[in-house]
Design a protein around this nucleic acid. Structure first.
Length: 606
DNA sequence: ATTCGCTGCCAC
DNA sequence: AAACGTGGCAGCGAAT
């Protein structure tokens, strides 16, 4: 086994063990089992801590198991080469420990290097802080190290803005870990990692949280990979769609012909010059023609009976297309046939991803025509249908809802309680998830509460905790932000005979938030577990035709771009991954998470 | 000239 | 007017 430890320093010449190894007898340290530790029932992999020097090189060190000594320390001038060698040597069974995926992985991808697993210190620190009611505190490696040593905690470096379609050539990011001068970054990384492992082990459900840390980190890898691959995007089709709806492309800053004409006709109908983009002007204009409206929202305007209304609604629709996904967007975000959004993993409190620029999570249906697979390739869109109510069934243990979630249409059984009205059943379920009480929700909720009492009790309890200022958690342990000082003053410190009106409103708002959080956050982590499994499955699939890729991820939907000959295999990977996510998270339950899979040339057909 | 809150619409 | 959660983003227009 001695030969199984350490990178293959010979041959490539890329690895330069300048400092040699700290532990001459390290090969005896683990009985040869270092790479196959079983941790909380799951297979753990050899862990190697890595820091970059910002100039293409860096340092690495194998971590021992538990309290065992660490392995060799390496300083290399070609970090990507060293990591590649290590992975070739260890058969990919390595989990790389690093300060922040965003700082290291883009440069590795430039070297066509794919990392199977990592532990992202900043992301895990963020999860751990939130768990203990410290959401939002600095989470960089430097911040974590400073907290560990009682030093002043440096603020997180400001994240760079999205770079658009033509990002700068990628180098390893300069040191953004905020480690104080004089402190060895690799030592700090190893120390903070051990501390995080310890903090996770102390939690009530360490296995669940370890899974969360693992898939959050896997998500960070996938996000970088997806930005790198990009969504296949036909600019010519996009341009044709825009021209069809808006007319020929205008000089920049001008209204397209169709919008200009609509604006003119709207002004004529009002009998005055009105900029339809200005809510203020529209409100005045509606008053002037004897149809005062409280707002200019589409659904409000629709109630008004006047010939200007259809023109205005049409204008709003097309204006949205032009401003949000028009020619300017196309130039800024699409290049060389790919749309490259910049994902922010964990950017949403519930654990969903956000994006920075490009609006990737709001690609309107009209524009999806432009998403077309390359020749000889195909798109595979997989959507987890009714994910949130199914998650509620799983976490609440409501037998009736779980039975409903054992079928393809979760709403069908409840619909029978509404005389077969499926739409009302759907509104009832979503009202329970969102805390809706107004409109027609109240009577629907009564039926929901009667049929699924445990499910309602679960979200009601989360709402109550939120209203009282408490924390709620997802199934794996992602924790909602603590209430702000302002909120506490308003709600909890109310003087006299009870909370003020503002306090009551704030309390109910937070209640709706925490009610939804326990479900949305768990749905998000189901999606992360699913994605991590898909990612691994695709890597194992391989292909002589080209590498199957994940290219788009949006809350409960994943889009793959794969060579046609491997499409069937990729679909099988998707189904297996959904099943794996279900059992990894919830074990043996009757709730199913059916996947709607569409193999299509064009995303609009999914 | 720049910043920032608001409005309104898009996605899930 | 309605009383539903998480977000991004463009345009407006007042504040700076």
């Amino acid at each position: 086994m001695a030969g199984r430890v350490g990178p293959p320093a010979s041959g490539s010449g890329r690895v330069e063990p300048r400092w040699g190894r700290y532990h001459a007898d390290q090969t005896d340290r683990s009985g040869g089992k270092a790479e196959n530790l079983v941790f909380h029932g799951r297979l753990e992999h050899m862990r190697i801590a890595v820091v970059s020097d910002g100039e293409g090189g860096g340092r690495l060190r194998e971590l021992g198991s538990g309290s065992g000594p660490h392995g060799g320390l390496w300083q290399v001038s070609d970090l990507a080469g060293a990591i590649s060698d290590y992975q070739g040597y260890a058969g990919g069974s390595i989990r790389w420990i690093w300060a922040a995926t965003d700082d290291l992985y883009p440069a590795l991808m430039e070297h066509s290097l794919r990392i199977p697993r990592c532990h992202d210190i900043a992301l895990v620190e963020s999860l751990l802080l939130a768990y203990h009611g410290r959401f939002g505190e600095a989470r960089s490696l430097g911040a974590a190290w400073a907290r560990l040593h009682g030093r002043d905690v440096p603020p997180d470096p400001v994240s760079r803005a999205g770079e658009g379609a033509d990002p700068q050539p990628t180098l390893f990011e300069p040191d953004r870990s905020a480690i104080p001068a004089g402190v060895d970054r690799l030592d700090a990384l190893i120390e903070v990692h051990a501390d995080q492992q310890r903090r996770i082990a102390e939690l009530p459900h360490p296995g669940r949280f370890a899974l969360l840390a693992s898939v959050e980190s896997a998500g960070a890898l996938a996000a970088v990979e997806m930005s790198h691959s990009g969504v296949p995007w036909r600019a010519d089709i996009h341009d044709a769609v825009l021209t069809e709806h808006l007319g020929a492309r205008p000089p920049s800053g001008m209204r397209p012909p169709v919008l200009a004409e609509l604006a003119g006709r709207i002004s004529e109908e009002f009998g005055r010059r009105v900029n339809p983009d200005s809510p203020t002007q529209l409100l005045k204009a509606f008053s002037a023609i004897g149809h005062p409206v409280p707002s200019t929202r589409s659904w409000v305007i629709k109630q008004v009976d006047h010939p200007v209304v259809p023109l205005l609604l049409r204008y709003k629709e097309l204006s949205r297309l032009h401003s949000a996904h028009g020619w300017t967007w196309l130039e800024n975000w699409v290049s060389r046939g790919r749309f490259r959004p910049d994902y922010v993993v964990g950017g949403v409190v519930s654990g969903r991803w956000a994006t920075r620029g490009g609006g990737a999570l709001q690609i309107p249906k009209a524009i999806r025509k432009a998403v077309v697979a390359d020749p000889e390739w195909t798109l595979i869109a997989a959507d987890a249908g009714q994910l949130e109510p199914r998650v509620l069934a799983a976490v609440s243990g409501d037998d009736a809802l779980a039975a409903a979630a054992g079928g393809d249409d979760l709403y069908a059984p409840l619909a029978r309680s509404f005389g077969g009205d499926r739409q009302r059943a759907k509104v009832a379920v979503l009202s329970a998830l969102y805390g809706q009480t107004g409109g027609d929700a109240a009577p629907l909720l009564r039926t929901m509460r009667r049929d699924y009492p445990s499910a309602l009790a679960y979200v009601d309890s989360a709402a109550q905790a939120g209203e009282e200022g408490g924390l709620v958690r997802s199934w794996l342990g992602r924790t909602c932000p603590q209430p702000s000082q302002m909120w506490r003053r308003l709600v909890l410190d109310g003087t006299g005979g009870g909370p003020s009106r503002d306090g009551g409103r704030s309390a109910r708002e937070r209640g709706r938030f925490t009610r939804n959080f326990v479900v949305q956050a768990t749905a998000a982590e189901w999606a992360l577990v699913f994605m991590a499994a898909v990612r691994r499955g695709l890597a194992e699939l391989g292909s002589t035709y080209g590498t199957p890729q994940m290219v788009f991820f949006q809350h409960d939907e994943l889009v793959l771009h794969v060579p046609r000959p491997v499409a069937d295999s990729a679909v099988a990977v998707l189904y297996a991954a959904a099943e794996e996510a279900r059992t990894l998270m919830f074990g043996d339950i009757s709730v199913r998470f059916p996947l709607e899979v569409a193999v299509v040339d064009c995303y609009a057909d999914a």
